[in-house]
Each structure stands twice: as structure tokens, then as C-alpha cells.
Design a protein around this nucleic acid. Structure first.
Length: 618
RNA sequence: GCCCCGAUAGCUCAGUCGGAUAGAGCAGCGGUCUUCUAAACCGCAGGUCGCAGGUUCGAAUCCUGCUCGGGGCGCCA
């Protein structure tokens, strides 16, 4: 069994051994040299390699191979590895002994599975989802929600306190316009449907556009003669009136008018009820407790402006208040010339709150890539005024995860055939239907483990499969890239997909089901990987902790996705080549069962961090 | 016009701090089933790492210029 202090990560072990060897060979001045230990790409070069010799030799004006040999001579790895070998221009190859692999696997065999706690005791704030009140969730919200949830799970897994911050668009003129639109249309807000809301939102947006952009632009046009101008003004009169009316409603909302306030709350309830339903379908850990939207910050905006003025970080420009930056022309506007606030003002209030009040040393914005420039401005403005420091003085890092767009087969943003946005709900329903269809169809095979399973279970599994398909497809490539949404490809049970990983997990489960044994009874059985396929699997298992640390640091969930596939792949090869239940020797059988058990637990844990369920049979 | 991002096999994508012969999946071709779940495994084939220079013992990776595609750019959010 594991001790609390032993690291299960061979890389850490090798790093410290090499550091002492380098210090021993070259003197204590070199004790801090990074030995650059990496897992070898090719088994012919051993399990791990140390790549420091070439760079260091250059600095010292020496031959890399000589230097490498000198360090190898000072190296004592006899307890864990075969003698290290110098190869090529100066690589040092290391091959671990089976007994060492066994000990390391023992060390990771507890609930942590080799994942070490994050040393930073501060919290993390993650801005995700970002729904707008009066608007259905659409595919645009998909990525922010599932990426944000996965990153939150990974930080929580490393022991950090995570605040999932759902920065709702629940305040300001857009909402007032919808309320106003509904009231003028005489809609009964107690019988309000999402469709009503959608229509009102769209109509309100059209009015605003016609008024603010259309008229202003057309009137400035040199081609607009007096006749044309009169015509335009007439056309825009109703739009203009709509916006004026909405502005009056906004004032009443801001002043706390009970009637408007009650309508506002009804809007939020209708919107959020549907949103919570989507969260349930998506299997994300989000709920009312995560809502902290624009309305939450509305009373703090004046303070933001005051602070920027007081600290001399903002200045007036054409009546507006702006923050200027040394390295770019365009300033950040934080107050309009009419005295109104902008979304930048709210975002600055949110930065202040997350760092100062929530004590987060990492504030992560999971918002699409189009807002890159905006967040750069916000972060730089926050730094200028010193809001990147927690109350206890720790430096806070503000990070934007600029994810790419979800595209249709035509490489344009995903829309329905008629050009409407696809609702998130309809997309998830289709994923679940497809998953359920597959699971039920396969259960009809009399040889299938799910044959005869209750329909309830099949449906539950089908939902898990459909959602896994969508999530894995979304999380498995570099987030910054756009990707083409393709159901057929992502739900395939072959290849790098969510369902394949779930299947790999279910296959391991079936071994224990067939053996009718409790994996916990294996705890005292020795694990000793000897066959090449066993060793590969063991090495893969031992990487788990560092993969989780890398994923948290880099905020790149696709690293974990790639790893889990590689682990499933290593397991499949092992499973093909090494009989487990049919192994003649009981000690080999026990050792292999422990490899199976560890694989199953890492797959289940890793999938959970991606927000993907791992059914025991499918 | 200015700024940002992307380009790797037919298709979809990995590629760690610059390291050994650039790797997967899908599609294609050929094998392995009285199965430990074949939703699998093994093998073959497939490359101007967008282009041109540069730095380096070593470049898909770093620097400069360019091409193509996408996005953003002061009083909307």
C-alpha cells in the first residue's frame, strides 16, 4: 500500500537521482540543473530518457557524450533501473526494473491514483456558461459550459476550492427591451414560454439595430438626399420609439419599481428553468448557486469608476472615461459620455470581486476567441490599478481561454437549414437519442452483457453515451481551434471517441463481473509487470498524476483526452496479449487483475474529470 | 489600414522546455474470432509539417518576411 510521501511518478524519482548525479560529477554549482527527463517515444530507447547533456555540454564547451557518461558514472539507480546507457549525440536512456514498476504502482494505489494536491491554498474562479436571460441556450454556450466544468473538476480533483461563476446577462438595456417588448405586446408573463421570450428578444434586438445603427449610418450617407432622409426617418420612427420606451423601462427597473422588478424576476425564472434542464442533460455541476451575473455587480460600478479616477488610471476623452495602454492605440472605455456604464465596467467589477472577495489566484474566463482583445484590455486595466492581488497579497493570474467556434459542414457557424441558431437542448436531445438507439440495438445481441437489461438502465446508458460523444469531441482537440460538428463521427464507437473510452472501461468491469470478485480483495496481491504489454500499461498508469497537473497548469483538457485514449489503447494491447482470468499461474493472474483494477479506476476518474460517466456495462 | 489566431497524411487531429526515424483516429488494403465484451487487436500503405530565408550540433517547434483562411478594432454586450 502507498505511503503519503512516496511519489508514484517515475519522472520525479529520476529527476532527483539525476540532480544528485550531476552535482556529484560537476560540483554543487550544477545541483539545480534540470535533467530534462522525458518518457521515451520509442521503446528501443528505454522507458525514460534524460536530455540535458547536449545543452549543458555546449555551455561548458565539452563533448556531450563524455559529459553524459560522467553523469551516468555518478548515477545510482540500481534500486529502480537497469544501468543507464548513453546513446546518439548524448541522450541517456533508462529502463525501469519490473520490481520498481510494481512498487510505484503500489504507491499510486489509493483513492488519489497518483494525483498530488495543488500546493496553492487559494481558490480558483472560473467564468463559464454565460447565459443571457430571455434567450435560449444555443451551441455557443456548449463549449464554455463543458470546458469550464471540466477545468473546474480538474482543479477540484487537485484539492482547490473552485468558484464556478455564471456571469449571467441579466441586466441593462437588452433585458429592459425584452420586458418592454413583452409588456407592450400584452403578453401574460405568468404563462410565458421560451418561444415567446426568444421572439421578444429578437424583435427587441431588431428595433435597437434599426434605430442605433441603421438610421445613424443612413443619415450620414452622402447619397441620402432630403427625400431619402425623410423616408428613413419615418421607417425608423417606430424603432426609435421602441428604444425610447425600453429606456424608460430600464430606469424603472433600476429604481426598483415593484411591477417591473416582478416582471424581471419572471423572465429570469422562465429562462433559468430551461437552463437548469440543459445542465441536467449535460451532466455539468452547475446550478442556481453559481449565478452571479451583471445584476449582482450593478451597485459596484460607481465604485469601479471612482477607483479608476482616484488612482489616475482612467482619463476623460470626448466625454467618455477611458483607460489608455502604452502599446496600443485603442483605449478601453469604462464609462460612456452619457454617464452610462459598459460591459467593461462590469467585467472590471467582477475581476475585483473574484480576486479580492473570493481570494482567487487564478481567474479563468472560458469565453470564445472573439473576445480576446476585450479580455486583454480588461486584464491590463486590472493590473494597472493593482486588482491582480488577493487580500492576503498573493499574485493573481487572469487567464482567458479563447476557444474556437463550432462549425457546420459548410465551415460556417452551425445553424439550422433555415439559418436559425440551433438550440442546445435540441442538439443534446439528438445526441441522447442516437446514443440510446445504439445501446438498445447492441443489447439485442444475446451475447451482449446488456442483453435483457432493464430498459431504464439502457436509457441511462444511452444518455451517458450520447453526452460522452459530444463532450469528448469538443474537449479532445486544442481549444483554440474551430471544429466541425459531426454527429456520425463523434458518436462512432470506433476510434478516438467518448463512447470508445466508455467501452474500454466497461470491458475492464466485465472481467471482475465474470470473475465474481471484489477488486478490493486484491489489495495485498503483488503486482509485477513483466511482459512488454504489461510494462507499457504500467508506465502509462504511472503518468496519470503528472498528466492531471499538466492539464490544470496549461488549461488544455485535450491533454487528458489524449492520455485516456492512450491508456485505453495500452490496455487493449495488454488485454489481447496477456490472458488475465485464464492465466495459469495464480500470482500472474493476481498481478494482472491489479493492472486491470488500476486501469479501470484511472479511466473512471479521468472520464469523470471530463464530465463523462463510465457505465459498468454497455 | 491596424491587431490577434490558425495552416502537419485523402479527411479529422496529436506532437511536452528545440532532441533520436513527425505520430494517432477515420477512410483504404491485408490478417486474427468454438472470444476474458470483435464497440477489439496486429500489419501494410499514405508527409514539400502553407511558402522563403535565418538562428542552432539539432527546427513542425524559436526569429524575420510573405501567402491563404478566420476573427477583432471608442460610447452594443
Amino acid at each position: 500500500m502507498s505511503s503519503q510521501t512516496a511519489s508514484a511518478d517515475p519522472i520525479e524519482l529520476l529527476e532527483s537521482a539525476f540532480r544528485s548525479a550531476i552535482a556529484g560529477a560537476l560540483g554543487d554549482d550544477y545541483a539545480e540543473t534540470d535533467p530534462i527527463i522525458k518518457a521515451s517515444q520509442n521503446p528501443q530507447f528505454g522507458d525514460y530518457q534524460a536530455n540535458f547533456a547536449m545543452g549543458l555540454a555546449k555551455k561548458l564547451g565539452r563533448k556531450p557524450r563524455d559529459l553524459a557518461q560522467e553523469v551516468v558514472d555518478a548515477l545510482d539507480l540500481s534500486a529502480v533501473a537497469e544501468p543507464a546507457e548513453v546513446a546518439g549525440p548524448g541522450f541517456i536512456n533508462i529502463r525501469l526494473k519490473p520490481e520498481a514498476l510494481g512498487r510505484l504502482l503500489d504507491a499510486m494505489d489509493d483513492d488519489e491514483l497518483g494525483v498530488r494536491p495543488d500546493p496553492d491554498p487559494h481558490s480558483v474562479a472560473i467564468d463559464l456558461c454565460g447565459v443571457n436571460v430571455a434567450k435560449q441556450m444555443h451551441v455557443g454556450h456548449l463549449r464554455s459550459t463543458i470546458i469550464g466544468d471540466a477545468i473546474a473538476r480538474i482543479y477540484e480533483r487537485r484539492g482547490r476550492k473552485v468558484f464556478r461563476e455564471n456571469h449571467l446577462g441579466d441586466w441593462g438595456l437588452p433585458i429592459a427591451m425584452v420586458i418592454d417588448q413583452l409588456r407592450r405586446a400584452g403578453t401574460d408573463l405568468d404563462r410565458l414560454t421560451l418561444t415567446d421570450l426568444d421572439r421578444a428578444y429578437r424583435d427587441a434586438q431588431l428595433s435597437a439595430k434599426a434605430d442605433i445603427r441603421g438610421l445613424a449610418r443612413a443619415m450620414e450617407s452622402p447619397h441620402a438626399g432630403p427625400h431619402r432622409r425623410a423616408e428613413l426617418e419615418e421607417q425608423n420612427a417606430s424603432a426609435h420609439e421602441a428604444v425610447e420606451s425600453a429606456k424608460r423601462t430600464l430606469v424603472r427597473l433600476q429604481q426598483g419599481d415593484p411591477e417591473i422588478r416582478a416582471d424581471w424576476e419572471k423572465l429570469i425564472r422562465v429562462t433559468m428553468d430551461a437552463v437548469y434542464e440543459s445542465y441536467e442533460l449535460l451532466n455539468v455541476k452547475l446550478g442556481p448557486e453559481n449565478n452571479r451575473g451583471e445584476s449582482f455587480f450593478r451597485d459596484r460600478l460607481t465604485d469601479v469608476i471612482d477607483a479608476f479616477v482616484r488612482e489616475g488610471v482612467a482619463e476623460e476623452d470626448e466625454g467618455a472615461l477611458v483607460v489608455r495602454f502604452e502599446d496600443r492605440d485603442r483605449p478601453l472605455l469604462i464609462r460612456k459620455s452619457d454617464g452610462g456604464f459598459l460591459y467593461a465596467t462590469t467585467d472590471l467589477a467582477a475581476v475585483r470581486f473574484r480576486v479580492h472577495d473570493l481570494g482567487a489566484t487564478r481567474v479563468i474566463y472560458v469565453v470564445d476567441a472573439r473576445q480576446r482583445d476585450h479580455f486583454r484590455d480588461i486584464f491590463d486595466a486590472a493590473k494597472k490599478i493593482g486588482w491582480d492581488r488577493t487580500a492576503d497579497g498573493a499574485a493573481a493570474e487572469l487567464v482567458h481561454i479563447p476557444f474556437g467556434a463550432v462549425l457546420g459542414e459548410d465551415k460556417r457557424p452551425l445553424k439550422t437549414r433555415s439559418g436559425e441558431n440551433i438550440t442546445l437542448r435540441s442538439l443534446l436531445i439528438e445526441a441522447i437519442e442516437r446514443g440510446t438507439h445504439e445501446v438498445i440495438r447492441r443489447s439485442e445481441d444475446p451475447a451482449a452483457p446488456t442483453h435483457g437489461a432493464p430498459l431504464e438502465e439502457l436509457k441511462r446508458t444511452g444518455k451517458a453515451v450520447g453526452i460522452a460523444a459530444v463532450k469528448y469531441a469538443d474537449l479532445s482537440s486544442d481549444l483554440v481551434r474551430d471544429y466541425v460538428f459531426n454527429f456520425d463521427r463523434m458518436i462512432a464507437f470506433e476510434g478516438r471517441t467518448g463512447p470508445y473510452l466508455q467501452y474500454a472501461h466497461a470491458r475492464v468491469c466485465s472481467i471482475f463481473a465474470r470473475a465474481e470478485m471484489d477488486p478490493d480483495s486484491l489489495r495485498e496481491v503483488a503486482v509485477l509487470p513483466q511482459e512488454p504489454a504489461e510494462k507499457s500499461l504500467a508506465l502509462m498508469l504511472l503518468r496519470y498524476g503528472s498528466i492531471i497537473a499538466d492539464t490544470a497548469r496549461s488549461l488544455e483538457p485535450h491533454r487528458l483526452c489524449t492520455y485516456l485514449y492512450d491508456l485505453a489503447d495500452a490496455y487493449s494491447s495488454f488485454y489481447q496479449q496477456c490472458p488475465v482470468l485464464k492465466a495459469d499461474d495464480p500470482s500472474i493472474r493476481g498481478s494482472r487483475l491489479r493492472l486491470c483494477d488500476l486501469t479501470r479506476r484511472v479511466l473512471e476518474d479521468g472520464l469523470d474529470l471530463l464530465g463523462i460517466e463510465a457505465p459498468r456495462r454497455m
